[in-house]
Design a protein around this nucleic acid. Structure first.
Lengths: 187, 187
DNA sequence: TTGCTGACTTAAGCCTGCACAAGTCAGCTA
DNA sequence: TAGCTGACTTGTGCAGGCTTAAGTCAGCAA
């Protein structure tokens, strides 16, 4: 029986039992942003929030937690702390998204969209629109050739970072080309 | 100073200070899948894992945690437990993704892709390809009109679910059409 | 009928995340 | 110089997630 909703394995990955995802990029990402407050702080940063108190108030978390999470996000390079000064005020610190942080937007939109679809009884509370065009924006999978890709049209192959660390099996049994030496390895 | 990497607010959302994201779909999603082991279990489900022990082993979590998370995911409707029987074996339970669970794939791919880009020193350990076409698949934002959308081309507007619960401000001050009656009010 | 295996459950203890409350510290304003 | 405010830090205590270790239970195989 072909398991519904699962991805096809190719190349060295094929017997799924022969490897484990020990160097999974998803796991690495979750090391950085696994908890709820991190994600919501990033959401607020996308919404333009930059001040400490605003993060705590708008996310609905306590100040100690806001301080801890903001520090982690700055340390991880997703936010920067930049001093600014309004006239007649002392210098303050603004938290802004870095390129690294801003690059998480598609993931946040995808998660939000899933909540809109499956958990929002009355529909999406807020929607993203394409500035100018005005059409609703959503996160989707697409291939480099421009096709929209459904979940059942995916296959998994070893990538450029696989040789060094992916496979947990001590010695890769067959040294065949991983299917990626050909064709557009980069991104 | 225009805040870098942030989204423009339109309509009722415009003074950001006038509302808080109290009914945010991202927050709701994170109630269901906020923790690391949930996400990794879903990853394994996408990879075709269906047996209890395989989840525990391949995700690298203990059996009690695997049992707890699998139960939560089944309760939340992301996985189903279906009995199956191989000849000469007793009946076992297979965990399979439901449509609701499978719909999280774009979000997982987006998170994985971010890890590939920012946290994988030697490149992506594994890549997704479009079956048949063979081109690399990635998660991106696109609008209903088919345009690829960058993070700086987004605006946020109230959605259909906003009237009931989004705005925490007790009374919406002006009853104007929610989306962009003005448009590009800027900041 | 006894043993084995897959699929769990139960128990005990640690570590992290969180909230609440209170304290600190810098620098403008009065 | 005294107070105020924004931006934190420190302390306390609870709740949840995690691990290891051990127990349970069903049903095929010997």
């Amino acid at each position: 029986m072909p398991p519904a909703h699962s991805v096809q394995m190719t190349g060295r990955l094929n017997p799924r039992s022969g490897w484990t995802a020990s160097a999974c990029s998803l796991a690495r990402t979750l090391e950085v942003v696994s908890n709820r407050s991190c994600m919501l702080i990033l959401r607020e940063a996308f919404y333009g929030t930059s001040r400490f108190d605003d993060f705590a108030d708008r996310v609905g978390i306590s100040e100690p937690v806001a301080a801890a999470r903001l520090r982690e996000l700055v340390d991880a390079g997703l936010l920067t702390r930049e001093p600014y000064r309004e006239p007649g005020q002392r210098t303050r610190l603004a938290y802004r998204l870095t390129d690294k942080g801003a690059d998480l937007l598609p993931a946040l939109v995808a998660l939000m969209q899933w909540g809109d679809r499956w958990l929002a009884p009355t529909g999406a509370p807020v929607v993203y629109r394409h500035h100018g065009c005005g059409a609703i924006v959503h996160a989707e999978l697409s291939c480099a050739a421009g096709h929209a890709v459904g979940g059942d049209e995916l296959e998994l192959a070893t990538g450029p970072g696989s040789r060094s660390s992916t496979a947990s099996s001590p010695a890769a049994p067959h040294a065949g080309a991983p299917h990626a030496s050909i064709h557009g390895t980069g991104r």
